[in-house]
Design a protein around this nucleic acid. Structure first.
Lengths: 191, 191
DNA sequence: ACCCTTGTGTCACTTTGTGACATCAACTAT
DNA sequence: ATAGTTGATGTCACAAAGTGACACAAGGGT
């Protein structure tokens, strides 16, 4: 049992987001963040591999949830049903954190390197989800495509949800997107 | 007309990839790369915003091609036809560079920050493609989803193509993936 | 009391990235 | 041709991001 537990970590995350939001990401130094959290810069880098990671570290909690909901049932399922369940669960888990996520997204969108990190993290999730789908009994090749499309849709909905105050909830958006994915390929351009 | 034209830039790219491949990305310093190319580190950073960018700078040529092929026709098209044409053109443009791309992909896959950069670049392309699709007459919301799915599929095929020596060509893979995307949602798991 | 673990600090160092200014060859215009 | 301009590069100084090695101190267990 740690002597001074995760307290420092949380203070670092809070200090980092605050500074990113009101000074800008590039203008915030790790030194300032660390001092604001009451630790030294060296401690920052013990918790987070680099300055970017402090924005994404908390997401790691969600992956086990996603994998769990894929693995929990047994018996044959149709892919779109499985996908609806998995993405719906993920959406529900995130729904309550909209304010925090929106602040974070503003920071991410302000610097290209950060969008890259966000996508890289999702790509690693996608690999694990693919593995879970294969474990669940889907053919490997199609599991990859399912996971790829699933994440693409989820990203899409997430960003729209964060950008559109007062619009439909995330879970609803994900549901709609899934319903529409089949027909979108049949849409025709108007000119 | 520049006095010493793009020569330095090309030498820098070559030197960088060589060093990344045989020393590893993290172990290669910008200083070494620059000296190997016969310039100073300062010059490296004039051509490339950072150490990562040297791996991706050449991709910028492909975006105009992609946008062009979407914009060139007029008249109504079905989305899947448009997508097949665009992704097919992109695949064809890349097909001949497999060796180079494969070397590069090994470097990218060896460090997470690099996959992030790759994805961030594609995300910016995706935005431009979405705009092009809207300009072509597709409804905005569906243009976004089309672009998202298109890129997800292309990435998928690209990586499979690079990983699988002697397998089908990239263009063929992209064609197959597009044909299968509709039915993949109906697939059932085996348990 | 003793060790052992664990989170943190300190220090020195490399690497990345930038701003300001100097240089020098080639092109341009008179 | 002479002068001025332009553009790529070099030089220098410096801030910020990371890292490795070692020290220290508090708590827990034997």
């Amino acid at each position: 049992m740690p002597r001074w537990p995760e307290d420092s970590r949380r203070r670092l995350v809070d200090a980092a987001i605050s500074q990113f939001v009101d000074r800008g990401y590039a203008e915030s130094t790790v030194e300032n963040i660390a001092l604001a959290a009451g630790v030294t810069p060296r401690t920052f880098f013990r918790y987070f591999a680099d300055k970017e990671e402090v924005l994404f570290a908390d997401d790691d909690d969600l992956l086990p949830l996603l994998i769990g909901v894929i693995a929990e049932d047994t018996g044959p399922v149709r892919a779109d049903v499985q996908m609806r369940k998995a993405l719906g669960t993920l959406a529900a888990a995130v729904e309550s954190r909209r304010d925090l996520l929106k602040r974070r997204q503003r920071v991410i969108d302000s610097h290209i390197a950060l969008s890259g990190r966000e996508l890289a993290k999702q790509a690693r999730w996608q690999k694990d989800v693919t593995t879970a789908l294969i474990g669940r009994g889907f053919p490997p090749g199609q599991s990859e495509i399912l996971a790829a499309i699933g994440f693409a849709l989820f990203r899409q909905c997430l960003h729209a949800w964060l950008a559109d105050d007062g619009g439909p909830g995330l879970e609803a958006r994900v549901g709609d997107a899934l319903s529409g994915v089949r027909s979108v390929l049949d849409v025709r351009s108007s000119r």
